[in-house]
């Protein structure tokens, strides 16, 4: 039995928490629950939801555009995720080296990630311009006729994946923080044992920053599977749906075609996919993530 003082204390605690509890219920928990119900309905926002059971899910399975956007999203993730991980880790390792002007280099690498998404998109539209763009102009100096990066279906996806590296600054900063946390005595011990730089990287640095790598991996999985703004601005899903991604089709269904039920079903499928992949990452982490003191 709780005493009166404990009840009062609990009441006070809940009272102070209540703004968050109400906010969470009102803006997160209830909408999430409703979106699951709507995924079982035909719902246009204006008309009352019409319960149709699993029909939206069945329709999605038979919808060629759904499969197209799903494959596109995975293709993008397969290109952008490893490239982003390797480039950002590589940059962090370079920026961690004690060299002159280190702060300037760090700033230069971080700066692009501060550029607003729309501004970056406009900049890269010009860089990728087939006729006047910087990339093809440089290629032309070497006698190479560059492709229509964003206008040819086979090149649009790699171009977007390449562009995703522009914003690795944030990830680099997280890696840098991890790298600076690696105890110096481990490097000293390795050096005394005659371990070379590559072996030090493999046997000391990577295991020690593995929790950071794991965190960045999980964030990258979520981020790449939800890619939206850049292709929405730069290609609008084209040419010929070559860069039409899952979240873009979800958005179109919800706000252009007013098929809220269909879009909700897509959102739940997306959640399950991300959960599964994140789950696999967590499961595999037992083998390669090493926590200090664990």
């Amino acid at each position: 039995m709780m005493r009166r003082a404990e009840w009062v204390s609990l009441g006070k605690g809940l009272g102070f928490l209540s703004p968050w509890i109400f906010g969470f219920l009102l803006f997160t928990a209830i909408p999430v629950g409703l979106s699951f119900y709507y995924s079982l309905c035909d719902y246009s926002l204006l008309q009352a939801p019409l319960y149709i059971g699993l029909q939206n899910y069945r329709d999605l399975m038979a919808d060629p555009v759904f499969w197209k956007v799903l494959v596109n999203t995975f293709k993008y993730a397969v290109m952008a995720l490893p490239a982003g991980m390797v480039v950002s880790l590589g940059l962090a390792l370079l920026l961690n080296a004690p060299i002159k002007g280190q702060a300037i280099y760090r700033t230069i690498i971080f700066l692009p990630s501060l550029v607003p998404t729309v501004a970056s998109a406009m900049l890269w539209l010009w860089l990728f311009n087939a006729k006047l763009g910087l990339i093809n102009t440089i290629l032309r100096w070497f006698g190479i006729e560059g492709p229509g990066w964003l206008t040819m279906p086979q090149w649009a996806m790699p171009a977007l994946a390449m562009m995703s590296l522009w914003g690795v600054g944030h990830t680099v900063v997280i890696y840098l923080a991890g790298l600076q946390d690696v105890p110096k005595d481990l490097y000293e011990a390795a050096e005394l044992d005659g371990v070379g730089p590559l072996s030090r990287l493999r046997n000391v640095t990577l295991p020690m920053i593995s929790p950071v790598i794991f965190f960045n991996l999980v964030m990258a999985i979520i981020g790449t599977l939800q890619v939206f703004a850049i292709p929405f601005i730069m290609t609008q899903g084209g040419p010929a749906r070559a860069t039409y991604f899952f979240t873009m089709y979800l958005y179109d269904n919800a706000f252009q075609y007013l098929k809220m039920g269909y879009a909700s079903a897509m959102a739940w499928i997306q959640l399950v996919i991300i959960l599964c992949l994140t789950g696999i990452a967590f499961w595999s982490s037992k083998r390669w993530v090493h926590y200090q003191g664990a």
Binding site: F128, N129, A130, K131, L132, G133, P147, G148, W149, L150, T151, M152, P239
Partner: peptide, 10 residues
């Protein structure tokens, strides 16, 4: 096709 897409992108 290539000439047309390049022209349009410019």
């Amino acid at each position: 096709k290539d000439s047309m897409t390049e022209f349009r992108s410019g």
